[in-house]
Design a protein around this nucleic acid. Sequence first.
DNA 1: CGTATCATTGAGCTTAGTCAAAAAGTGTGG
DNA 2: CCACACTTTTTGACTAAGCTCAATGATACG
Lengths: 229, 229
Amino acid sequence: MPSTASVQLRNDRRRALSNQPHPLRRLDPLAVVLSCHRNQEICSEGRPADHWYCVVSGVARRCATKCDGRRQILGLLLPGDFFGFTAHEEYDFAVEAIVEGMTIASYPRRRVEALADVEPELAREIREVAFETVSQLQAQLLILGRITATEKVASFLLAMAARSSADQSDKVLLPVSRYDIADCLTVSVETVSRSLTDLKHRGLISLLGTRTVRIVDREGLAEARLNCH
Amino acid sequence: MPSTASVQLRNDRRRALSNQPHPLRRLDPLAVVLSCHRNQEICSEGRPADHWYCVVSGVARRCATKCDGRRQILGLLLPGDFFGFTAHEEYDFAVEAIVEGMTIASYPRRRVEALADVEPELAREIREVAFETVSQLQAQLLILGRITATEKVASFLLAMAARSSADQSDKVLLPVSRYDIADCLTVSVETVSRSLTDLKHRGLISLLGTRTVRIVDREGLAEARLNCH
DNA sequence: CGTATCATTGAGCTTAGTCAAAAAGTGTGG
DNA sequence: CCACACTTTTTGACTAAGCTCAATGATACG
């Protein structure tokens, strides 16, 4: 039997969910909203994939740990992004919270699928969300396919700018460390740092704080993505 | 009014479709089977995404052409693979036939979606197929994330071995040129060639023809994927 | 049988990784 | 509020992996 405090907490979280616009409002009644600690593993590679998730607030990373101990981040998950989809019975990859106190909505997969069987509209929305994941993965593939490290970093900045801020501000808040960016782009931390100072010296960006980038020359930055030496 | 010959052709193709096991048998009645020439563009970036496709025989590539003229292949499409899914109204990327005379099944998207609305089983299967695409893209991200070129090539060979041959033979038939492999792995053609001879000298593979690889030491090749210097 | 495409190999140069260290934040407890 | 430890970020010097340019072999195809 839940205490008054925990019920209050749950209500707060439910409210947080309804404030945040997200693609599957239809599923709100089934959602359980969870708060996560920094570096907490939300779902683990190889574990039964019995839940789907949606980021409500904060940022998470989908990561693969290679046998040599290195980590690759397959993609960052921002508010509104779904994860936990898999073609198999187990999760393909782990997802870890990056921001302390980030919140996620958790949906029991079987119940959602049962609901989708009787609500074609929901089934369509789930397809949309899955297709959105496909698009994001393809975009990430394009970034990794760039030639120079500076191109990758420039792409990363523009992608973050496009995804994170609904407003057309030229300020981009990087919610992750240089290490996370490095693992995202599969380059070394030092190279990320050097690329950022490179872009700064070329007058394309300026660093307000270490994690706040101001895009000075958006055009130039977009060109820098594509092989500008 | 179709000629006898074209009806015969259509029947042949329909039969080809039913011989080939593929995930959405349920859609066979809606399918139109097409034969494609080498390098023919099956769907074009930016065009209205009004069809979904499935590779029946042969191989295709999903490609993005960068502004500097370079091409990146986001993934190879083998028999049973679906493409044409997008979160938007237009195709994100072009898909081109690689093998002369390859055949694809084409499904009108609107009709399929309408059918899915009344057949929950079909809707589930489409989700499965979409999730499968997600898995493949993630696998491709992992390959691109490898450090050395030889690791990438080794990963590519093992991935092709796993995907193409249902039989557990150690012969892998590469259905694509070195150029295609290079664009898949975002390395230069020369590097692909050098990596293959490297793997050969290390006794992990042998080249029967230029496009037929025999995996000599599967264990060793799997290790070569992960940081073996 | 000639031509075009594909594949391999070599030499020089550029990029980014590694190792090392300093600088700048961040948080904790006295 | 400051001192201290810890993490994060930046910068430098060196090295190695892979790209480019160039040339030669091999294959496929009309």
